[in-house]
């Protein structure tokens, strides 16, 4: 969606055209749902977050100043809605150990990565690895490496400084690497 189209839809919504709001949010709904799934890891809660986020976005649209993209603003609204839900459920924030230790003798990953993409098992392995990440790292990683947002956009959405975002993303990437390594190193052993 072009920024001019987006701006026009925002203005039309504020002028009282709810249909414009539907058009405005439609391309972002799958992304918001995906983000909510990453935070809650629960499809029912993710749907409730999606609805909460869209209703909040509608009622607070006048606070959108256009300094960031509408997508970034909407994702921030959704993140807040999801985190509020976690807090209500009194789910304590988890963390990763302070320091990441480089494996003493890491083995190269071999096999044909392309062939893995087609396998259902591969998707389960990725999901299990994501599950093992504490929420604060998982969400940051998802926004950056799956959604493809910039570090700056992730910082705006998460309400973090740029160095904090970079630190979280690196920790997440290294943790996921460590989780996936046995599968790919196993392939090496299988092949040998």
């Amino acid at each position: 969606m072009l920024k001019t189209d987006q701006d026009a839809l925002v203005q039309a919504t504020l002028a009282g055209d709810p249909q414009a709001f539907q058009t405005l949010i439609e391309p972002h709904a799958p992304g918001v749902y995906g983000l909510a799934l990453q935070i809650t890891r629960n499809p029912v809660e993710a749907e409730e977050v999606l609805q909460d986020a869209m209703l909040t976005a509608y009622s607070r649209l006048s606070t959108f100043r256009g300094a960031s993209s509408f997508k970034t603003w909407l994702y921030r609204v959704a993140t807040n809605a999801a985190l509020m839900r976690l807090r209500k459920a009194k789910r304590a924030p988890e963390s990763l150990p302070e320091d990441w230790e480089k494996p003493a003798d890491p083995r190269p990953w071999t096999g044909d990565p392309e062939a893995w993409f087609a396998r259902e098992e591969f998707r389960q392995i990725l999901n299990q690895a994501l599950d093992s990440l504490p929420e604060i790292y998982r969400t940051t990683f998802w926004l950056r490496d799956v959604e493809g947002l910039s570090n700056q956009e992730v910082a705006e959405i998460m309400g973090l400084t740029l160095p904090a975002v970079k630190s979280r993303i690196l920790r997440a990437r290294l943790h996921l690497r460590d989780q996936l390594a046995p599968y790919f190193e196993e392939r090496l052993r299988d092949a040998s």
Binding site: P113, R173, R177, F184
Partner: peptide, 13 residues
């Protein structure tokens, strides 16, 4: 190895 496998991890996701 760590750099290459981390890059591969990012690529997978």
């Amino acid at each position: 190895v760590v750099v290459d496998s981390t890059r591969q991890t990012i690529r997978f996701f």
